[in-house]
Amino acid sequence: MTVPAIRLDHVGKSFALDGGKQFTALSDIDLSIGKGEFVALLGPSGCGKSTILRLVAALEAPSTGKVSIEGADPQALSRSHRLGVAFQDHALLPWLDVRANVALPFQVAGKKVDSARVAELIRLVGLSGFEKARPRQLSGGMRQRASIARALALQPEVLLLDEPFGALDAVTRRQMNVELQRIWSAQRITTLLVTHSVDEALFLADRVIVMSGRPGRIIRDITVPFERPRKPSVMRDPAFHQLVDELTLALEPEGEAE
């Protein structure tokens, strides 16, 4: 049996609230993600999907169960600079220009900056000509693209995307999805995307995991049938619409699901 790229083995996470109470964010999450697979975590706000991502990134430790990446502790991945992350908050350093921000992972890893790679990534995310711009001079969509370029800089083995386009308007968001699909198809990195957009999940992912909240748990695990590379026209496919309807229904709170 091959070791999955990402494995969450009956993972639970609870936080201590003020007043000594416990809040269970995640309960008994069991999930395996294969190498080179693009998985979307879909769910309403507060269902704990970002917590799963933070567990995989080793930014949090599970309360119960075990998270492993390629059979090892998730910290080993980030410590060996093989993890790429992009968050809803682009988290670019305001004092660095685009080029320096994309080059940052090299410096953090203590490696020589590969200028050709940095230039290539900037071109890949469509920011050529903006190398010397600072984050504040860019639009929201451009900042997210820079943030994704940064995440890809070291050719990571695992890419974690937490609502990277959550703050963008619908048109820009769709455009970014198309671009991310193009970028991803060229690299095929094991990717975990957190989103609350059904369209985004179906357009980008190989598998969609639907979650429900309080406590967060997995309620559906759907394989997306569409061929790659996907064009925006796939979103007009009747099969796409049917899956959108199905997932939207699954996301409804149980009481109103009739």
């Binding site: 980030s78 790429g84 992350v85 968050f87 908050d89 988290a91 953090v108 890893a109």
Partner: peptide, 18 residues
């Protein structure tokens, strides 16, 4: 430094000095 920036540095595997 913001929490998001700290997270990015942790995820990139930054040493305390870096």
């Amino acid at each position: 430094a913001s929490a998001a920036h700290r997270d990015v540095f942790t995820a990139l595997g930054a040493s305390p000095v870096t």
